[in-house]
């Protein structure tokens, strides 16, 4: 497949000049193309925010649902039709704020998804309020004296919950980001990619320059099965580690459903429930 196969032609994109989302959409297209996934086999599920508009700008099936709710929707789509490649794709506010509970329980369920979080450490669409990942002290029109809340750490949270794949990427490094995203898509089970992204319009702290200076790539010998080590790396907020921090093979949510114990056919392809079985179930109520 070619990157162009995901182009939808002339469309009015709602992103600001210099926005990290332009890089992220390229990273996504390249990853899908290199993995030979056809547009009709992939479903993007997004919430609301600037990040969440991404599925509108490429050729794919999409469910652009409510703010914060992409993970439950994506989980159900994958469970209903495991043949689809499902990507939950939204912003940091969407996933870690409004959807925080789904983030936690999505990890516990372990559906085979890529959970891609555009982490610009700000609420972009609503014009620059603090997000759960905003750094302490960041002044916004709402956080007038600067953020006083401890920043939410998605990576330590995911590792603490024994997530099956935990990674951090930076959209300014496309090649490396593509490698991480591809691996996350191929990974069987829930895969978090926290994608660091500058927001030139509202986040004056976490700029392209800041990311360059405050991130580093994990060494090749990093042992991703070592949970304590991964946790330790993830706690470091002075220097943000990039790469795959932690992986853990686990049975998937859909893989453990009774409906797939005998056959893999998606639910829509199966007929109605067998009337004789239904009659038997009803008959049980005779005594």
């Amino acid at each position: 497949m070619d990157v162009k196969d995901y182009d939808i032609g002339d469309i009015d994109m709602a992103w600001c000049p210099g926005c990290g989302n332009f890089s992220i959409i390229k990273i996504i297209k390249r990853s899908l193309a290199e993995l030979e996934i056809t547009p009709s086999d992939v479903v993007f599920v997004s919430g609301i925010g600037q990040a969440a508009k991404l599925p509108h700008y490429l050729k794919c099936n999409f469910f652009n649902g409510l703010h914060g709710r992409s993970v439950p929707v994506a989980t159900a789509i994958k469970a209903t039709n495991p043949r689809l490649t499902v990507i939950a794709d939204s912003g940091d506010g969407c996933n870690y704020g409004e959807g925080g509970n789904h983030f936690i329980h999505g990890i516990r369920r372990n559906p085979d998804l890529l959970h891609l979080v555009h982490d610009n450490m700000i609420y972009g669409l609503t014009k620059g309020q603090a997000s759960p990942t905003s750094m302490k002290g960041m002044v916004t029109p709402v956080q007038v004296d600067g953020v006083i809340l401890e920043p939410f750490n998605p990576l330590t949270t995911a590792i603490a919950l024994n997530a099956s794949f935990v990674a951090r990427a930076y959209c300014g490094d496309q090649d490396k980001a593509v490698d991480i995203v591809k691996e996350a898509i191929q990974h069987e089970g829930y895969a978090l990619v926290d994608m660091l992204q500058p927001c030139p319009s509202f986040n004056e702290i976490n700029t392209y320059k800041w990311y360059k200076e405050n991130t580093y790539y994990l060494e090749d010998d990093h042992d991703r099965t070592d949970r304590s080590k991964a946790f330790e790396v993830a706690t470091d907020l002075d220097r943000l580690a990039l790469g795959v921090l932690y992986t853990r093979e686990k049975p998937t949510f859909e893989g453990q459903q009774q409906v797939y114990s005998k056959e893999q056919t998606p639910l829509w392809k199966r007929g109605q429930h067998d009337p004789d079985t239904l009659r038997e179930l009803i008959k049980k109520h005779r005594d």
Binding site: F63, R69, A76, I77
Partner: peptide, 14 residues
């Protein structure tokens, strides 16, 4: 909230 969103995802996928 999750329950209803799951139900909608499930209908979407058939």
């Amino acid at each position: 909230i999750s329950a209803i969103n799951m139900a909608l995802g499930a209908w979407y996928a058939g």
